[in-house]
Amino acid sequence: MDFETKCVHGGCTSSADQYKALSYPIYQTASFAHASFGSSTGFDYTRESNPTRERLEHTVASLEEAAGAVAFSSGMAAISTVMELFRPGDHFIIEQDLYGGSIRLFHTICEKNGLTFTYASFSSDDIESMIRPSTKALYVETPTNPMMKVVDIRRLADIAHRHGLLLIIDNTFLSPYFQKPLTLGADIVVHSGTKYLGGHNDTIAGFAAASSLEIVEHLHETAMSIGSVLAPFDSWLILRGIQTLAIRLERAEKNAMQIALWLKEQPCIKNVYYPGLPEHPGYAIMKKQASGFGAMVSFRTDSRETAIHILNHVKLISFAESLGGTESLITYPLTQTHADVPEDMRRKSGIDDTLLRLSVGIESAENLIDDLASALPLSKI
């Protein structure tokens, strides 16, 4: 079954609902009755399992070509549960250019629980030399957030598996439509389902998918135990969003390329970070491991004043956190998504007061460019 068809039909050839509802039902219930002692419909309590959430998990697993997937109440809940696979004393090598919320989780929660972390640039550092006897996993986003660095997943998988490590990939920026890390050798994929999978900025969700059924079962048991599962209605919203995933990403990527090319020509824009540009250092790797370049564009202005002027003067584009929705959003990583990242780590990654991150939506590219043009300082056009 082709990807687009899986998006619409959830990887199934027919509806599993007894009434053949085209929109899969929302089983908005906490509990399920037993017909008699010793019998069960297969569902007992929604924290453990729910038909709507199960349908969604089957869909995401199908899209990622995974052994299975677990749906969580947020992307951070998904990452937190993945970290429960490990024990005190375990060591991780982490991409330093990473969503700030993930770094905050590692610093404030995981370190308290006895896990240790080494941060590195996976696109330039010698990762293999950093592996210790206690190292258990490599963790990376690719493209990275917000500097859009590209990491060779196949190369990392080879390093990880030669040393008996797990490779964990955050695939939020590209979604399984453009990139399938498990098919490239990764062991676990995590998502903020709030972003491209949901696609409408109307709910929060997270996912973890794995190549091993054993890992999936462990994640499910942990999620059930700590109660971090996704509610039925939110599961339905993500199912609905996934139906248009392919066509949304095609349009958003096309817009992103047009905007990246336009930004390159503006005198007050000093750098444009988009892996779809041939001069991007990760362009060749992206061509090998992904089927598209995504719709995230970061760029550096000539001054803090220019960056703030743009944020204060965009009208069609919203100045807001998050990404991956139908609407275009512009973010100031320094004070928003990466505010809790230690200053030295921000400096190493290149996150300063001139950096902006743009999540390109599905509006008219011409309208978006006009909005950006009108937000540039008049003296610098």
Results as ranks from 00 to 15, higher is better:
223 A>P: 13
204 I>P: 04
192 S>E: 02
221 E>N: 15
200 H>M: 08
189 V>R: 04
182 L>N: 03
224 M>P: 06
203 T>K: 10
209 A>H: 02
200 H>A: 02
198 G>P: 06
219 L>Q: 11
220 H>G: 13
184 L>H: 03
222 T>Q: 13
186 A>P: 08
206 G>C: 08
224 M>C: 14
196 Y>I: 02
225 S>Y: 08
216 V>S: 13
201 N>S: 06
188 I>Y: 06
200 H>C: 02
218 H>S: 15
187 D>I: 00
225 S>M: 13
226 I>R: 15
206 G>D: 03
203 T>F: 08
208 A>L: 07
187 D>Y: 04
216 V>E: 08
221 E>R: 15
192 S>R: 06
214 E>K: 15
201 N>M: 05
226 I>N: 14
183 T>E: 12
189 V>A: 13
192 S>A: 11
213 L>D: 07
194 T>F: 03
185 G>Y: 02
188 I>A: 11
193 G>E: 02
185 G>V: 00
181 P>F: 01
229 V>C: 14
186 A>I: 00
207 F>E: 02
194 T>C: 05
186 A>S: 10
209 A>I: 03
194 T>Y: 01
207 F>R: 01
217 E>L: 15
192 S>N: 11
220 H>T: 02
220 H>Y: 12
215 I>V: 14
205 A>C: 12
216 V>H: 11
216 V>Y: 10
181 P>Q: 05
183 T>A: 14
221 E>H: 15
210 A>Q: 05
209 A>Q: 04
185 G>S: 06
192 S>W: 04
197 L>A: 00
196 Y>P: 04
206 G>S: 04
210 A>F: 06
221 E>V: 01
197 L>M: 07
216 V>P: 14
199 G>C: 03
215 I>W: 12
187 D>K: 06
205 A>T: 04
211 S>G: 13
184 L>Y: 00
226 I>D: 12
189 V>G: 07
221 E>G: 07
215 I>K: 11
203 T>Y: 07
200 H>P: 04
181 P>C: 10
209 A>W: 02
